[in-house]
Design a binder for these strands. Structure first.
Length: 738
DNA sequence: GGGCCCGCAGGG
DNA sequence: CCCTGCGGGCCC
């Protein structure tokens, strides 16, 4: 869906999104299809001159598989066809809209002549061509056979449940894999939903322009450090976090936390792997399935099929806690459970979210093979769920497991439904295993995240928990690097948070005596009063010696048309908001004190481009050229059962890491400036095995001047590319034959 | 497809 | 500082 807001310029050079004609400088031409695009309307831009010349547009890059982090479920062909319509100067806007709709309904193929299928646009959505062959309705949770026929998931399951193994429509064989593990066809879901929408999706306004601020040192993509013994992403460090939420942010990630694209993380967004998923903030840990803190709550989970007891029903699922497994022997996971799980650590965190009624972000992975709702590949954000109950039971493997009932409560429709609206509160499903459950816990108080009947949407009824973390602009190694940096990051964080979340919609300042209107807009008490100063709700007039009391006009909220006259009769300060603000403010003050204390004890010499030796020694981190990523984390070797690589150079804490992304052999993705600074020969990525890359030196240092602690060894980091370490031919595409 | 094993990242 | 962890790449 990310591509919905991505359109190029038409034949006249007019941007199809913002309808302006960009200047030559503000245009980019795709190296593959040679189509011009309006740079300001792109959600993701190339970063350097070199990458500009090699730039591939969103359509082409999604087709070739070399893509930005977010992928669209909409096929490239469809987009191309829409573009062709948009570019057709012979058509009026109305005709274009009509054509787009035909296209979406599958009636007019791109190469068909104008006029084909023009009738019947409004005869019904999609005119039956996608209908389930059983119930003859638009498929509910559609699954598609290899022969191209669509069915409702339920209808399909019923059919194969009767032992049928051929397509009900054409009698072609149904592969056994599909019979046992049908997967929802998410492209079809999107197509149906878009076609059902009355408004054409192309008219959805331009993507907002974002700023070019790069507040992070990390490269855009995951990168391997020299320490990493394995190629590709298996031992990679994460690329930069694109969203500005703190790691303990609860609930959906709205546009204001997405300076990159200004759209937030949308339901249905997909990522290649856990590292990419992390970069968009949907789920931060890159191995663990649960993100959370035992005394704070859990923010997100991943369904990856790691636990046998998991049970997925789409809108609700049963999740299994973590632990109970023997991870000795340097393992990160283990399929076998060997002791009981308890409500500690992450399991406790989930319990907190259950009791508080926090929204928990849910990501599904293709690795969950037993779920029809899992994506075909990679990971997909499916929106927020609430944990309605938790308990323990004896799991399939004979040991106790913690269990959680997740029920969806998102304002956006799930990726498998063609509904145009999000969830409505639904009754809890029957859970047979509850009969044998122990330690059943359910929420007693009202949930923090709940459905507001009046507005027909889910929202925070109680203020969300206050973040205990800073925004992910700097990771732990970065913070070590510079106390100055730390100070900046913290200050920005708390103050920004205050302003972002608790500012008055009238004065724009952090609210004093916050009030929340029934339409959920927040104002200072004084601002709200000020907005209605002189307009009393009940007006008294003196006329002819008699007092006339007349009802004033509707008093609408300063931010929306909602009538808040009733609320104004007895406006109350929002206590919870006030507490939240106070708490954040005190946090802010603490930090400011801390920082000023540090400042006093610090020497004043730290200019941004000079690295004090002291700092380098203390932190054990080297800083290199400006702009180069510097936060590879040296850290210690893990104790687990480290088999050291030996050699004369044991990897120790003293080692200094210098993360320069090295250009890929395929020439994609690396900023030109970085590659230029590396004097060493680029490391071949294709030889994944055997020969470790030579220790590269910091380019700047080789060149001379920048001060770096003398006796430190350096490491290099490489941006992880797709074909890393794969000696096999890239020409084979398997999926087409499966 | 299963087993092995690594650095990274976060919790406490 | 140590422990944990529903990854990921490669070997077999």
């Amino acid at each position: 869906m990310a591509h919905v807001s991505q359109l190029p310029c038409d034949g006249d050079g007019v941007c199809m999104l913002c309808k302006t004609t960009p200047s030559h400088e503000d245009q980019l031409t795709c190296r593959t299809c040679v189509t011009p695009w309006h740079v300001s309307c792109l959600s993701s831009r190339p970063e350097s001159l070199a990458s500009t010349l090699q730039w591939e547009c969103p359509d082409c890059s999604s087709l070739s598989g070399d893509t930005p982090a977010v992928k669209s479920a909409v096929s490239g062909e469809l987009i191309a066809a829409i573009r062709a319509i948009e570019a057709d100067a012979a058509l009026t806007e109305q005709q274009k809209a009509s054509k787009r709709q035909e296209l979406m309904s599958g009636k007019a193929l791109p190469e068909e002549e104008e006029g084909a299928g023009r009738k019947g646009v409004n005869d019904g959505v999609l005119d039956g061509i996608f209908n389930c062959s059983f119930c003859m309705q638009l498929p509910e949770r559609p699954v598609t056979t290899p022969c191209g026929h669509n069915f409702c998931l339920k209808c399909f399951q019923k059919w194969v449940g009767q032992g049928k193994r051929t397509c009900a429509k054409c009698r072609h064989a149904i592969p056994s894999k599909m019979a046992s593990q049908p997967r929802i066809n998410s492209s079809l879901v999107v197509a149906i939903r878009m076609a059902k929408m009355s408004k054409s999706y192309v008219t959805e306004g331009p993507a907002k322009v974002y700023h070019f601020v790069r507040n992070q040192d990390r490269p855009d993509k995951a990168f391997t450090t020299e320490r990493a013994q394995k190629t590709g992403k298996s031992n990679a460090a994460s690329g930069k976090i694109f969203v500005t939420i703190p790691a303990d942010h609860f609930g959906p990630i709205p546009a204001e936390y997405d300076p990159e694209r200004n759209q937030g993380v949308l339901v249905g967004e997909c990522w290649e792997d856990r590292l990419e998923c992390r970069q968009w903030g949907a789920h931060f840990p890159h191995v663990a399935g649960i993100a959370g803190q035992s005394n704070h709550g859990a923010q997100s989970v991943v369904l990856s099929g790691g636990y046998l007891d998991d049970e997925d029903h789409g809108e609700w699922f049963l999740y299994t806690g973590s632990g109970g497994r023997d991870l000795s022997g340097n393992k990160r996971t283990n399929k076998d459970q060997s002791f009981d799980q308890t409500f500690e650590k992450y399991n406790k965190a989930l319990q907190v979210s259950c009791l508080k009624g926090y929204p928990v972000r849910v990501v599904r992975s293709h690795k969950e093979k037993r779920s029809s709702y899992a994506p075909e590949k990679g990971l997909r954000y499916d929106g927020v769920y609430r944990i309605e109950k938790c308990w323990t039971k004896v799991g399939i493997q004979g040991f106790k497991v913690c269990r959680y009932l997740f029920v969806r409560c998102d304002n956006e429709p799930a990726p498998w439904t063609s509904d145009e609206h999000g969830d409505r509160p639904r009754p809890l499903p029957p859970i047979p295993e509850l009969k044998k459950a122990t330690s059943i816990i359910e929420r007693k108080s009202s949930p923090s995240w709940d459905f507001e009947e009046k507005d027909g949407c889910w929202k925070w009824k109680k203020s969300p928990p206050i973040s205990k973390k800073t925004v992910q602009t700097l990771d732990s190694a970065d913070r070590k690097r510079s106390r100055k940096g730390k100070k900046k990051a913290k200050n920005i964080t708390v103050r920004e948070r205050l302003l972002r979340e608790f500012s008055c919609l009238v004065c724009g300042e952090v609210m004093t005596l916050p009030m929340t209107t029934p339409c959920a807009h927040n104002f200072c008490k004084s601002c709200l009063e000020g907005a209605f100063a002189g307009k009393s709700l009940v007006r008294e007039r003196n006329r002819g010696g008699r007092t006339l009391r007349t009802q004033k006009n509707i008093m609408s909220c300063p931010s929306c048309p909602t009538d808040i006259s009733d609320f104004l009769q007895d406006p109350q300060v929002n206590r919870e908001l006030m507490d939240a603000i106070e708490s954040l403010k005190s946090q802010n003050e603490e930090e400011e004190n801390e920082d000023s204390a540090e400042e006093i004890s610090e020497d004043v010499d730290n200019s941004d481009n000079e690295i004090s030796t002291e700092m380098v020694e203390e932190a054990g981190v080297n800083e290199c050229a400006e702009g180069s990523p510097t936060n590879c984390n040296p850290e210690r070797s893990p104790k687990r059962q480290k088999v050291d690589a030996g050699e004369g150079s044991p990897k120790t804490n003293d080692e200094v890491v210098n993360c320069i992304p090295v250009a890929q052999t395929n020439g994609k993705g690396s900023p030109e400036t970085d590659t230029e600074e590396v004097n060493e020969t680029p490391v071949a990525h294709t030889n994944g095995k055997g020969s470790p890359a030579p220790v590269a030196k910091c380019g700047k240092q080789d060149a001379g001047p920048v001060g770096v602690a003398a006796n430190t060894r350096r490491k290099k980091a490489e941006v992880v590319g797709k074909d890393n370490g794969s000696p096999s031919s890239p020409l084979l595409v398997q999926s087409d034959f499966e």
